[in-house]
């Protein structure tokens, strides 16, 4: 356990992560003003609770965990009111998308790579991801956190991170590359839940992750 910290020291530790927190906050809330409030609240809570931070663990994962909790507690309703059409994990459309099309395999992946993605389309496609998938995708793919850090940040087992990340990638690929000729094959590959051996997973595919960083 850490000790209470004064404001100056806390700033030295955390302000280098301000861009990270803000960037994730914008992705969570999809609104820059809300993101600013979210980050401010996160850092104030972290400051007050700093004696509960365990030294030697990832400070950025701890801050992101607080940010995620703040988002769930305070901002999620507001964001959802604005985005009534947002899909949730349980949304039938989403479930249908995953299980029916089952995230089709590529017929010609080499050909697809000849056409770069367009930035605006990518931003919109990330924003369209269902919330639980968007969080994991942003933390792991955009912000490059390790799976362990993502799991700590959102409070889920690491196998869930892996599974959601896989689905997020496939949803994004399908969304972004929908119009391209190659999305035709119906090979099933997205339905199996990935289960990390360290979660003690008994069902679905088990894969061993390397030792936690």
């Amino acid at each position: 356990m850490g000790a209470p910290v004064d404001a100056r020291r806390f700033e030295e530790l955390t302000l280098p992560m301000l861009d990270l927190l803000y960037s994730v906050g914008v992705r969570y809330t999809r609104n820059r003003e809300d993101a600013e409030d979210l980050v401010q609240e996160t850092l104030l809570r972290a400051f007050r609770a700093f004696d509960r931070f365990e030294e030697g663990t990832s400070l950025r994962a701890w801050l992101l965990r607080i940010l995620t909790n703040c988002y769930y507690n305070r901002y999620r309703r507001r964001v959802h009111e604005r985005r009534a059409a947002d899909l949730s994990v349980d949304d039938p459309y989403h479930e249908g998308l995953v299980s029916d099309a089952t995230l089709r395999c590529l017929r010609d992946p080499e050909g697809v790579m000849q056409q770069p993605l367009v930035s605006d389309e990518l931003q919109r496609a990330i924003d369209r991801l269902p919330e639980a998938f968007r969080m994991v995708f942003v933390l792991a793919e955009v912000e490059q956190l390790t799976y362990r850090e993502v799991a700590d940040a959102i409070g889920t087992p690491i196998g869930t991170v892996m599974s959601r990340l896989h689905r997020a990638r496939k949803l994004l690929q399908q969304d972004l590359l929908r119009g391209r000729e190659w999305v035709t094959d119906a090979e099933a590959e997205g339905e199996v839940e990935g289960t990390a051996a360290e979660d003690g997973g008994a069902e679905g595919e088990v894969v061993r992750l390397r030792a936690t960083r």
Partner: peptide, 23 residues
């Protein structure tokens, strides 16, 4: 491509000031 293109907005300067004030 995601790493190259995904928007990672930088925190506005006023946010650091706000946080510092509140801390």
């Amino acid at each position: 491509e995601v790493r190259r293109l995904a928007d990672r907005p930088r925190a506005p300067e006023r946010l650091a000031q706000r946080v510092s004030f509140e801390l």
